[in-house]
Design a protein around this nucleic acid. Structure first.
Lengths: 234, 234
DNA sequence: ATAAAATTATAACGAACGTTCGACAGAATC
DNA sequence: GATTCTGTCGAACGTTCGTTATAATTTTAT
């Protein structure tokens, strides 16, 4: 009776690709579909059994609880996104390019695996007390990466503070607005009428970048941070 | 045995403020809290009973099902937002001011009643087939208002098309990005560290407006019905 | 061929779910 | 003072939930 004997919070399907792991991954895909469709609480194990064609008892051969199923999905989705991001970021050192990479990576994943992304976003605060805090940590790490990229950009362009209107916008607020644009995607995106990942990522990046830069660009051609915060009439 | 005898999809607590309606409104507040905390599917009628101090059976004197409870909450939240919006929009005819009013109205409500907003956003596709389609209609109406405001602005400023990067951004995409920034609020906003509604709405508006205007403004030189327009609501 | 690993059907478990029944008390009406 | 209406309740109904046990069988690996 396997089902991954340990109960520590961080045993994920190890890199080693056994037959067991492959089947579990298959089940995780079905579960992602069911959770995306009916929500974690609204979906039943019997729904999953029906969709996957695996008997109710058979499912429990691969995991030990419905909670763990959700944990696997979210953990895997999150780490995949971060891993891909790290791969991309290694390719450039230009702050703007790197931020655009972040957005493109996120948007691309969202459009490629919309259901996984929906489960990640929508069931964000379901898990508590073990898996929950671990996932919160990963999320925090991901958030910090984005903050770092924005801060690098702000420094490189010599902006005293992010400009929005007359008062400076905190990095936190700007980053949350960016996450809002990206994470809301799953509620409206329709591949038949909406632009592909490349275009969408560029447009979102453009909006964000123009947002944090001042009205006239508010930049110094190069060094020396001084001078001219954009001043709307006031 | 009351509980609102009819079963048509649009009987809401009528303007007439009877004792019954007042008690129902009180229950709706408790229900909003429970749904916001545990999600619609995750919350039980017993949770609501416990929180409100009203017996399980007693609750059903005021409504006929859990579904209808959610419908009441979402319907009331939506129409309240739209009503307030109409009131504000009547105060100005300047396109930019009107768009800023839209954002401010939405953000303001989101920060004033975050739980209601969370239930509206998070349980968006739970209801189907009756209440669901009615709510989808209201949502669509709200969306169309926003599209109208953006289109007015684009026309008034003589933008060929919304500019984002080299290719034009569709109004749909821009509006969805705006909704993303606003509707994601409920996942992160913390009144102790984040700016108040006034400031936040201005910053989001600024990001959005700079986003849809070109880098240099991208306006056509032909007409210029632009006046500085001292913003700030009355 | 044989041992091990997967998987099934069946059924059950206790707990929790949404909802309803019938009774009952107080207030309003007659 | 009797009767009706309004609000509230404890207790239960029938169903579904996540999960497990058992025993039998098929599939895979050695």
């Amino acid at each position: 009776m396997p089902a991954s004997s340990t109960s520590r919070a961080s045993d994920l399907p190890v890199p080693q690709d056994t037959r067991f792991d492959r089947r579990l991954a298959e089940i995780l895909d079905y579960a992602t579909e069911v959770f995306a469709e009916k929500g974690y609480e609204g979906a039943s194990m019997r729904d999953l059994s029906r969709l996957s064609g695996i008997s109710l008892a058979g499912l429990y051969y691969y995991f030990e609880s419905k909670e763990k199923l959700l944990y696997f999905i979210q953990q895997h989705t999150f780490t995949t996104i971060i891993d891909r991001l790290r791969g991309r970021l290694a390719g450039s050192s230009d702050p703007e390019t790197r931020l655009r990479m972040f957005v493109h990576n996120h948007v691309d994943y969202s459009l490629t695996r919309p259901k996984a992304m929906k489960v990640l976003s929508h069931e964000d605060d379901v898990l508590k007390n073990g898996y929950g805090t671990e996932l919160a940590g990963i999320k925090r790490e991901y958030y910090r990466i984005c903050v770092g990229l924005v801060d690098d950009l702000v420094k490189a362009e010599g902006l005293k503070s992010i400009a929005a209107g007359s008062s400076g916008m905190k990095t936190r607020t700007a980053v949350m607005a960016l996450f809002g644009m990206m994470n809301w995607l799953y509620t409206w995106y329709n591949p038949r009428v909406d632009p592909d990942a490349e275009v969408l990522a560029r447009q979102i990046s453009d909006v964000f970048l123009r947002g944090i830069r001042g009205v006239n660009g508010s930049r110094e051609p190069n060094r020396s941070p001084k001078k001219a915060q954009p001043k709307r009439r006031s």
